[in-house]
Design a binder for these strands. Structure first.
Lengths: 189, 189, 189, 189
DNA sequence: CATGAATGAGCATTCATTCAT
DNA sequence: CATGAATGAATGCTCATTCAT
């Protein structure tokens, strides 16, 4: 919306990742953003609102990116999940601060239930995909939420590993490899 | 060591889990522990030292529990890993505050690199197991650290899922199931 | 002068009475007045100037109303004072916000000495009336300023009492009654 | 209670009288009191609580002083009221900061209704005296609250006048004089 | 004249830490 | 060892005021 708002968001994201939420004062954010201390509160009612807005926007942006060009519902479950896996990783690697921020704060008490629910709702399409997969018998009998947990967990472990690697030459291969490990594991017997 | 120290540790653990680290004042910890505000600083030089001590002790306790009765090095890789998986889950479910605390803070900037390294060192025995497995060709070609990441990720996702379930009847089955998914996935082709 | 100025004055008066001076931000005044935040400072150099202008205008308006139709100097002291008493009460009851505002702020440090003196000067005609009365021996020996203090004090107490009454049926009687109490008290023995 | 508390109370009283409530920062109070900024909040939860505590204590102290040696209920109404008039004036002149503070803030929005009611309750004994006087027919027919309003108003006007006088030689006489003016006025015809 | 986004000094309040008892 | 009153630096937030449009 506003250029100043963007500067504040970028500065907050950077500092939160580097020093944590509580070790980052609103004054530090304003300074890093190159605006006055009062300006932050022009765009965000409070520090907490800033955090929650950051979280919402991050989750929504990622969900939107993942959903883009999603293979039609008619496609095979594995095709759809592979798309999600790849796109999520791509987004995370291209937005490292955003990704680290949401990883760091997704379990923090600063994210209100409201924000968490809103973020969850933008990933509802994943639930649909999985439900369909379970119904079609392509997945070993498993709770839908457990499946999502395992999927995100392995994806997250892979992204973090890839991010910390020196060379970025074989990122794609690692991602494909771990995806296939995961699918081999959960495939219906 | 001291009874007061134990009370402080228990109070801190409880409050950190319930309200987060920064929302828990040392005064609140002292009150919950039933000691004076100054007493906390008799046992811990600072709040940060308290956190780090808590983290170290937690990780060490868990590592010790997991290592107990570990099948001899001669045993099959899967046997050893299953032992670790089960013991880790058992410990986590029996010490929910400890487990949640270490999960919450393992990625936080409050844990110093020193502490993190010390904690990692108490899990070195896991690395040995895995290295051996890789050498023996029982695992699909994979980086040792990636393997550990995936292993812990899947284990953590399972524990969290199980912890949040209403009924505790089928905990064991879920744990066995996700372990076998994981092993099926990473087994050498 | 300007319509916007009037809106600002009215809004300020209302909010100052309802929430006090310091609890009323210039932004709130502007909003209540339906103008932009900058507009207030077009008409008043500062918030303090607004307060003082409000006070001056209020006092002058009241003084002008009281002086209107004032019985000639030749009239009896009591006749003149009764006129003042009645007119002041009428004005106060018809302009409750103005009256409460000036009551609230007449002793506040926000009213500068300059403004206070200016306000006092618009009530100089009262001093003349009283001086004349003292000279003519109609008043028990008393300091002029003490007399004015007692007069205003009793008038103010009556107005406040009447304003807070539910029914407005007997306002006039109460006003006449307290006036006569006052005059009986201070009459020359 | 505590020496520090006393210092804070005295400093607050002084500064509030001199510069008003909102122009006095808690830091300024602490500095004037010779304590650290945090110490104020050790004794008062907030600035507002400090104000209200000051107001309550002031009103209670004054009420206690006025009630001391109060002529027995059997005494004449005028004897009782004269005692109150004198003692109230004495207290006000001996505690000028306290008196000015309570005068300044009795109508301010910072005094909560709770505090105001508590203060009023410590002056209930005045109501009893007046009710008795009205019943005995010693007062011109008048609402009890109106009487109290007039009484306090005239007393306040006198105290303020006396306080601002240069010489303090004839304080007593002025006080007696205005009291008799007042009583002459309200006496039953 | 009028606007309202932007400013930044100022403030109330918190809380980790100390130290005299 | 243990206490808890006292400290004061640090922080989130407000708001009177300015100025480019």
């Amino acid at each position: 919306m506003s250029e100043k708002r963007d500067q504040i968001v970028a500065a907050a994201l950077k500092l939160f990742c580097q020093k944590g939420f509580q070790n980052t004062s609103t004054a530090a954010i304003s300074k890093e953003a190159g605006v006055a201390t009062g300006t932050l509160f022009l765009y965000f009612k409070s520090k907490e609102e800033l955090i929650n807005a950051l979280y919402s926007e991050t989750k929504n942006a990622m969900a939107a990116y993942v959903q883009e060009d999603l293979p039609a519902a008619a496609a095979a479950l594995e095709t759809q999940l592979l798309h999600c896996w790849r796109r999520a990783a791509e987004w995370a690697l291209e937005h490292p601060f955003h990704y680290r921020f949401s990883a760091m704060f997704s379990n923090s008490p600063f994210i209100t239930k409201l924000t968490r629910d809103e973020a969850a709702s933008s990933f509802l399409f994943m639930q649909d995909i999985i439900e369909k997969g379970i119904k079609q018998g392509n997945l070993a009998g498993m709770d839908k939420n457990l499946f999502i947990s395992l999927f995100s967990g392995q994806l997250h472990a892979t992204i973090t590993f890839v991010e910390n690697q020196q060379s970025s030459s074989n990122h794609k291969e690692v991602l494909e490899q771990t995806f296939h490990f995961f699918m081999k594991g959960v495939a219906a017997a």
